[in-house]
Design a protein around this nucleic acid. Structure first.
Length: 195
DNA sequence: TGCCCGATTAACT
DNA sequence: GTTAATCGGGCAA
């Protein structure tokens, strides 16, 4: 049964929330799709923006769970995260790829491509397709323009190392939908994460 | 104040 | 395979 996600969903460990988001549906102003790839970040690990402590950029990460943390990447792109765990954990899940299902016309227009596989295959592309910008930083995930729904049934989730990092590169905190053609990159090995 | 670099992408060779 | 685009955070001075 598909249900709208409530804030309590995000209050759990980032390592529970991240795989549970695979297969969920994310919409921003009615545009979006099925989550097929995410990554987990936690302040105890040096790859996280929150590792060095509270700053103006990462302040939302240090707040309560269930809010959007949006940051500028490489001075060019926006990246969307969901803040998790009780306030102060400074943990978040980076949304890396969607299978587009709603608002295809709007996404193709924003992205300037008709190749549906590349509409949301990557954190920067996804934000461009959904129209996510710094204006969404700090917004609640259970209120408009966000709508997030649980997955309908069981899915095969695979895990592997995160993408594009120079620190903590070995932690297998990237989660994806097994076999999806909408991933930003394929998973090297099909390893099912521990429950 | 200045410098370096990044949770990326697209367009190259 | 490599590299430019582009800018705010973090740290050295």
């Amino acid at each position: 049964m598909v249900k709208r996600l409530r804030r309590a969903f995000f209050r759990r460990s980032v390592h529970e929330v991240a795989p549970d988001l695979i297969g969920a549906v994310l919409l921003v102003d009615g545009v979006g799709g099925r989550v097929v790839e995410v990554e987990a970040y936690h302040h105890t690990e040096p790859a996280a923006h929150s590792f060095g402590g509270l700053t103006s950029r990462n302040a939302v990460m240090f707040g309560p769970p269930g809010y959007a943390y949006v940051y500028r990447s490489y001075g060019i792109h926006w990246c969307l995260n969901f803040v998790c765990e009780p306030k102060g954990s400074a943990a978040a899940v980076l949304i890396r790829a969607l299978e587009p299902t709603a608002g295809l016309r709007a996404m193709r227009r924003r992205r300037g491509t008709a190749d549906d596989r590349l509409l949301c295959a990557g954190p920067g592309r996804l934000c461009e397709a959904l129209g996510v910008t710094h204006a969404h930083n700090g917004m609640a995930l259970d209120r408009p323009p966000f709508e997030i729904f649980t997955r309908a049934g069981a899915v095969d989730v695979v895990a592997g190392p995160r993408i594009g990092l120079t620190k903590a590169i070995d932690l297998p905190w990237r989660y994806g939908l097994k076999g999806s053609r909408f991933l930003s990159k394929p998973f090297a090995a099909a390893v099912t994460p521990a429950a």
